[in-house]
Lab assay of single mutants.
Amino acid sequence: AEKTGIVNVSSSLNAREGASTSSKVIGSLSGNTKVTIVGEEGAFYKIEYKGSHGYVAKEYIKDIKDE
Rank of each mutant, 00 (worst) to 15 (best):
E17C: 13
N32Q: 10
G18K: 13
I6T: 08
S52P: 00
F44Q: 01
I37K: 00
T36G: 03
K34N: 04
E17A: 12
S22K: 10
G18T: 12
I26L: 09
I47M: 01
G31Q: 11
G42Q: 02
L13W: 01
L29I: 12
I64E: 06
A43M: 10
A15M: 15
T36I: 13
A1E: 09
R16H: 15
I61H: 02
S10P: 11
G27D: 02
I37V: 04
K3F: 09
S52A: 12
R16M: 15
V25P: 05
V9D: 05
R16P: 03
K3D: 04
S22P: 03
A57I: 09
S23A: 11
E41V: 10
A19H: 04
G54T: 03
Y49C: 08
S10Q: 12
L29K: 01
N14C: 15
Y45F: 08
E48W: 11
S52Q: 12
V35N: 01
E2A: 15
Y45T: 05
I47K: 01
I47S: 01
S28I: 14
Y45A: 05
K24Y: 04
R16A: 03
Y55T: 00
G18C: 14
F44I: 01
I37T: 00
S23T: 06
S20R: 05
S28Y: 12
A15F: 15
I6K: 05
R16N: 08
K24N: 08
I64M: 07
T33S: 10
D63E: 14
V9M: 07
L13R: 02
T36S: 07
V35I: 08
S10V: 13
D66P: 12
K65F: 13
I64W: 08
I26M: 07
G31W: 09
Y55V: 00
G51L: 03
Y45P: 05
S11R: 11
G5M: 05
Y49M: 07
K34V: 13
E48T: 09
I6A: 03
K62E: 08
E59C: 11
K65R: 13
E48Q: 11
V7N: 02
V25M: 05
I64V: 13
D63N: 09
E2L: 15
G42L: 03
S30P: 15
G5W: 05
S22N: 12
S52F: 13
V7P: 02
H53N: 05
G54H: 05
K62G: 10
E40V: 07
I37F: 01
I26V: 07
S12K: 12
E41Q: 08
G5P: 02
I26N: 01
K50N: 14
D66I: 14
I26Q: 01
K34L: 11
E67H: 12
E2C: 15
Y49D: 01
G51A: 05
K62L: 11
T36K: 14
K34Y: 09
K58Y: 03
K62T: 14
K3G: 04
G27A: 07
G39K: 02
A19D: 02
K50M: 13
K24R: 13
R16K: 05
I6F: 10
Y60E: 06
Y55K: 00
I61N: 00
N32I: 06
K62H: 08
K34F: 09
A43R: 08
S12N: 09
L29F: 05
Y60T: 04
N14K: 12
I37E: 00
E67W: 11
K3Y: 10
F44D: 05
I61M: 03
N14Q: 14
L13P: 07
L29E: 00
V7G: 04
H53E: 07
K3W: 14
K65Y: 10
E67C: 13
F44H: 02
V25I: 13
G31F: 11
S30A: 14
E17H: 07
N14A: 14
L13V: 15
D66Q: 11
V25C: 08
N14P: 15
V9Q: 07
A57M: 12
V56K: 00
K50A: 11
L13M: 06
G31D: 11
H53I: 14
V38C: 11
V38T: 06
H53T: 10
T33W: 06
T33E: 10
G31A: 15
G5Y: 05
V7C: 06
D63H: 09
G51S: 06
S20V: 04
E59N: 07
E40I: 07
K46Q: 07
E59L: 07
A57H: 08
V38K: 05
T4S: 10
D66H: 12
K65A: 10
T4I: 12
V35D: 00
K46G: 02
V7E: 01
L29G: 00
N8C: 15
Y45D: 05
A43W: 06
R16Y: 15
V35G: 01
E40Y: 04
I26P: 01
G54N: 01
N8L: 09
A1W: 15
Y45E: 05
A15W: 15
A15V: 15
E2W: 15
I64H: 05
E17L: 08
E17K: 07
V38N: 01
E59T: 06
E17S: 09
I37G: 00
K50R: 08
L29N: 00
G42P: 00
K50T: 04
V35W: 02
S23P: 02
Y60G: 08
I6H: 06
K34A: 06
E2K: 15
N14S: 11
N8M: 12
V7Q: 03
I26C: 10
A19P: 15
A19F: 04
K46E: 09
D63P: 10
Y60V: 04
E59W: 06
T33M: 09
K46D: 05
S10F: 08
S22V: 08
L29W: 02
G51P: 01
G51H: 05
I64S: 06
I61T: 00
S11Q: 10
S20E: 06
E67Y: 11
K3V: 09
V9A: 10
D63C: 15
G31V: 10
K58M: 07
T4D: 03
S10E: 12
G51C: 07
I64Y: 07
E40F: 05
K46W: 07
S20H: 09
V56I: 08
S12E: 10
V56R: 00
S12M: 11
S23D: 05
K46T: 03
S11K: 12
G39I: 02
V7T: 06
A1V: 13
K34I: 14
T21Q: 11
V9H: 10
A19I: 08
I47W: 00
E59P: 01
E17Q: 09
Y49Q: 01
A15K: 03
Y55E: 00
K58H: 01
K3E: 02
Y45R: 04
T4R: 09
A57T: 05
G54S: 06
T33P: 02
E17T: 06
E67Q: 11
S20I: 07
V9G: 10
E40W: 05
F44V: 01
K62V: 13
S10C: 15
G54M: 14
A1N: 12
V7M: 04
K62F: 09
G27N: 02
T36A: 07
A57E: 15
L29S: 00
T36V: 14
E67G: 12
S11W: 06
Y55P: 00
N8P: 04
E48S: 07
R16Q: 08
